[in-house]
Amino acid sequence: MILELDEVAVSYGGVHAVRGVSLGLREGALHALVGPNGSGKTTLINAVSRLTHLSGGTITFDGADVSGLRPHQVYRRGLARTFQGIRLVEDLTVRENVALGFEGRTPEARWFRRGASGAALSAADEALDRLGIAGVAAERPGELPYGVQRRVEIARALAGDPRVLLLDEPVAGMGAAERVEIGETLRQLRADGMTLLLVEHDLAFVLGLADQLFVLDFGTLLASGDPHETAALPAVRTAFLGPEERRRDRSA
């Protein structure tokens, strides 16, 4: 396993957002983390990317305990992520935004002194081409459709050449055609050997993509395994539909 969580817990005061979650990501596979709204999905990947303090447990990345590291330190080790909300710098071009992903892997932080390096801009061009959006490199993020902005965020993460990529609801707010395109992009990243963890609340979207499914409910790992088999479990159906809706579904 390239990434392993052992009894990871996150608490805010008396609220237990994540409760003793243990799971592992296989290198080169596409994993999906699903669950109802408020089940702790984003909190868990915030913990993995070290944006949220652990209340308990350990996180091991590529054989090393990274539980006590800061976000930039795990990023430089090769663990990148995207966010639910768009986080692009409006005053920079798309190309410059994506270049930040490369510069974040270097300890010099030269961007803040002299602008992006040639190597960073080259990495940005490669990432934009990989996502099929090289044509918008010179534009500002605010000038682009929402779906394209999402792709720019993924390109920025790819510019850092990660080994593991965490994506927090990358198709949220997208139309059907855009969702299909992002799905194809994720398949290609997996084919290129990247390890992915896709966080979603839309169970149907991930069933055709994922190699393994993890289901969270009330901060606990409810089930994991083959996507279709796991999704069919009564406990998982209840978590997503609710007991009353599940009874109606069975009688239909």
Results as ranks from 00 to 15, higher is better:
114 R>F: 02
72 H>I: 01
87 R>M: 02
85 G>L: 15
92 L>H: 07
101 G>T: 01
83 F>D: 01
77 R>E: 03
96 E>Q: 15
71 P>D: 03
116 A>M: 04
118 G>E: 14
102 F>Q: 07
94 V>R: 01
85 G>C: 10
64 A>I: 13
83 F>G: 00
117 S>K: 12
57 G>N: 14
70 R>Q: 12
57 G>I: 14
93 T>H: 11
119 A>S: 09
115 G>R: 11
65 D>H: 08
68 G>C: 10
78 G>I: 01
108 E>G: 08
114 R>M: 09
63 G>V: 13
98 V>Y: 07
95 R>I: 13
82 T>I: 06
118 G>A: 13
104 G>R: 15
60 T>A: 05
77 R>F: 08
88 L>D: 03
101 G>A: 00
88 L>F: 11
89 V>I: 12
104 G>Q: 13
67 S>Q: 05
82 T>C: 04
116 A>L: 03
119 A>R: 12
109 A>Y: 06
76 R>W: 09
63 G>D: 13
112 F>I: 12
78 G>K: 06
71 P>W: 02
83 F>P: 06
107 P>T: 12
75 Y>R: 11
119 A>N: 06
71 P>G: 03
104 G>F: 09
94 V>F: 00
97 N>D: 00
79 L>C: 03
100 L>E: 04
82 T>W: 01
111 W>N: 04
101 G>L: 01
106 T>G: 05
106 T>D: 15
102 F>W: 15
104 G>C: 11
75 Y>H: 09
107 P>R: 13
60 T>Y: 00
79 L>H: 03
72 H>V: 00
107 P>V: 12
98 V>G: 10
98 V>T: 07
92 L>G: 03
113 R>M: 08
73 Q>V: 06
108 E>Y: 15
112 F>M: 14
68 G>E: 07
95 R>A: 15
58 T>W: 09
62 D>T: 03
87 R>I: 05
83 F>T: 02
80 A>W: 02
97 N>S: 03
63 G>C: 11
75 Y>L: 13
97 N>L: 01
77 R>G: 02
114 R>G: 03
72 H>L: 04
63 G>P: 14
92 L>K: 06
84 Q>L: 04
73 Q>P: 02
97 N>C: 03
72 H>Y: 11
115 G>T: 10
75 Y>S: 10
68 G>T: 09
58 T>G: 12
72 H>F: 07
84 Q>I: 05
59 I>K: 05
70 R>G: 04
92 L>E: 10
96 E>N: 10
92 L>C: 02
79 L>Y: 08
112 F>W: 12
98 V>L: 08
64 A>D: 14
107 P>Q: 11
83 F>C: 07
112 F>D: 11
113 R>W: 12
70 R>S: 10
117 S>D: 03
62 D>W: 08
61 F>A: 05
115 G>F: 04
101 G>F: 00
101 G>Y: 05
64 A>G: 05
113 R>S: 15
57 G>H: 12
111 W>C: 04
73 Q>C: 03
70 R>M: 08
75 Y>D: 00
67 S>G: 08
104 G>E: 10
96 E>S: 11
115 G>K: 11
99 A>C: 08
78 G>W: 04
118 G>S: 14
104 G>Y: 02
96 E>F: 11
104 G>N: 12
71 P>S: 05
69 L>A: 10
69 L>G: 04
72 H>T: 00
86 I>H: 07
70 R>I: 00
76 R>S: 04
58 T>E: 15
100 L>S: 10
102 F>S: 12
116 A>E: 06
112 F>G: 11
